[in-house]
């Protein structure tokens, strides 16, 4: 397997009122295509900072970040936006759907900024909604959906641009256990279809679903272990039971 994303001596400093805070102190990590990585660590360990850098939402103070063959660490704001819209998918803890949009419209948003919104991609969005089990809720708005359903929309949205890497930030943080399992089953199925997933979590039982667990502490990688996946995907993974 080849590295789809690689960080080399990644440093991130913040100038806060109390002085300089070193959030990342030279992190080196390779992420291979098809990886399913759980980033863990106590708060302040730098895992969210790392995810933000991997998501091209921020730029490192020093070091390099290679996404595919491109060094994106020195890119300007517009170039980073371009990278996000083409190569990355995001899943957030609080779903982050746009309230006034319907399910399909929310899934379409990344395409809008790629200039690829047309009839063809619309059908693709509908198929994705059907894939995550929301085929009968295409015109619903986020407020009309449960937390699990909203997160399914977010997952569909993260897939719409066929990204290299899906970044999930505490994707199950707001969900109950049963729904969390449904979501993790969905992510696992996607991973088995070849998608690279990097997720931040502080829950061990969620990390269990990953194939690789990277633990962080004080801005450094504390451990990086590969393991056999504990959970197996269900027989019909992409259309899990809905709440």
């Amino acid at each position: 397997m080849s590295a789809i994303a690689r960080v080399v001596n990644l440093v991130k400093n913040y100038n806060l009122e109390g002085g300089l805070v070193q959030a990342l102190r030279g992190v080196n990590l390779d992420f291979e295509e098809g990886d399913f990585v759980a980033l863990m660590g106590p708060s302040g360990s730098g895992k969210s900072t790392l995810l933000n850098l991997l998501g091209c939402l921020d730029r490192p103070s020093a070091g390099h970040y290679y996404l595919g063959n491109q060094d994106v660490s020195q890119m300007d704001d517009d170039q980073l936006s371009e990278i996000r819209s083409r190569y990355l998918g995001f899943i957030f803890q609080s779903y982050n759907l746009i309230a006034q949009y319907t399910v399909v419209e929310n899934i379409q948003v990344p395409l809008l900024y790629q200039g690829k919104m047309n009839q063809q991609t619309y059908h693709r969005c509908v198929r994705l909604a059907q894939m995550v089990g929301l085929g009968d809720r295409l015109d619903h708005r986020p407020t009309q959906l449960s937390g699990g359903q909203q997160q399914r929309v977010a997952i569909a949205r993260s897939l719409v641009n066929n990204p290299h890497v899906i970044l999930a930030d505490e994707a199950t943080g707001n969900l109950d256990t049963k729904t969390s399992i449904e979501i993790m089953e969905l992510l696992t199925a996607l991973n088995e279809m070849g998608k690279t997933i990097i997720m931040v979590t502080h829950e061990n039982d969620i990390a269990e679903w990953a194939r690789r667990v990277v633990r962080m502490r004080d801005g450094n990688v504390e451990s990086d272990e590969r393991k056999r996946r504990v959970h197996r995907r269900p027989t019909n993974p992409l259309v899990g039971s809905r709440r």
């Binding site: 704001d77 517009d78 936006s81 996000r84 982050n96 746009i98 948003v109 900024y113």
Partner: peptide
Amino acid sequence: TREIGIRRALGAKRGD
């Protein structure tokens, strides 16, 4: 503000 953040994360440029 949050919507702006979402749009930015999903690829919106400042100009957008």
